[in-house]
Write a protein that binds this DNA or RNA. Structure first.
Lengths: 139, 139
DNA sequence: CGACTTGCGTTACAATATAACGTAATCTAA
DNA sequence: TTAGATTACGTTATATTGTAACGCAAGTCG
């Protein structure tokens, strides 16, 4: 196998994991420039795409951003629901058992052969909801 | 009210409807330049955003593109499923009755307050599936 | 008619992403 | 070990998508 780009992939993944929320490719790039001053966008995008293939990273389509897959063990057979907090930027993967079947059923009836599901829900996470209970939004 | 930008909005909507599939803002821009040689991106984006507010246009997050809402009457209470054909680019809105409740239920349990749903399914539409039955994909 | 408000058009630029090319790293076989 | 084939990486350059900000035109109200 490659072995060559894997260091870069590991570093990109580490950056995303340390952050814990979604980052743009250029945010990742800026962090990596600390180590590799001459790094360029395609390097980051290649690492990100490889990681996405492997399932270690998800792309958040509605943010044009990327997030480390924090699957604590639950098998996300690349069809989970992402909940995105618009306050703090946190992104969680939620398993949604019946949902995919439901969706596939609807589309099958229309003759549509589904291949990739993008299910992203924007809103406010439990932490930020709680915070808004006390002092309002952003003082 | 405005009244002033409404011509532009109407023209943008007309372009999207004529096309029938998703277009990038710059695709729309190119078409509009036939009439308005000096038109610039912000004009198009403003029209698109206004149309999205009104519900006449949807943004396709996973394509960074826009599509005219072809609701033939069915009330898409801004929470429908979009099926996107990766072969021909057609985009359909599908009603998904139970789905939103299902989704909300899952997220409520996690304490997440949902505000905007992005549900986009990529695949092959019935027309393109049929075509692929005879001559394969793209000779 | 003149002052006020709204928001449009334009310029300029920011943010996101990829094409393409030369080359360095790895692999295979002699 | 090395010559040759192959892979895929780094770099340069550019394409694509999106927006900040400013000045002025169009509508509004006295």
């Amino acid at each position: 196998m490659t072995t060559r780009g894997e260091q870069m992939q590991a570093q990109v993944l580490a950056v995303l994991k340390r952050k814990g929320s979604a980052m743009s490719a250029y945010d990742v790039l800026d962090v990596l420039r600390a180590d590799h001053p001459k790094i360029a966008p395609p390097t980051v995008y290649r690492a990100l795409n490889a990681l996405i293939e492997k399932g270690g990273v998800h792309r958040v389509e509605s943010l044009n951003a990327f997030v480390a897959c924090n699957s604590d063990g639950h098998s996300h057979d690349h069809a989970s629901v992402m909940s995105i907090c618009d306050d703090c930027g946190s992104v969680e993967e939620n398993a949604a058992p019946g949902l995919m079947d439901n969706l596939s059923g609807i589309l099958d009836k229309a003759g549509f052969a589904a291949q990739r599901h993008v299910i992203e829900v924007h809103g406010t996470c439990s932490d930020c909801v709680t915070e808004e209970m006390s002092g309002d939004s952003k003082p």
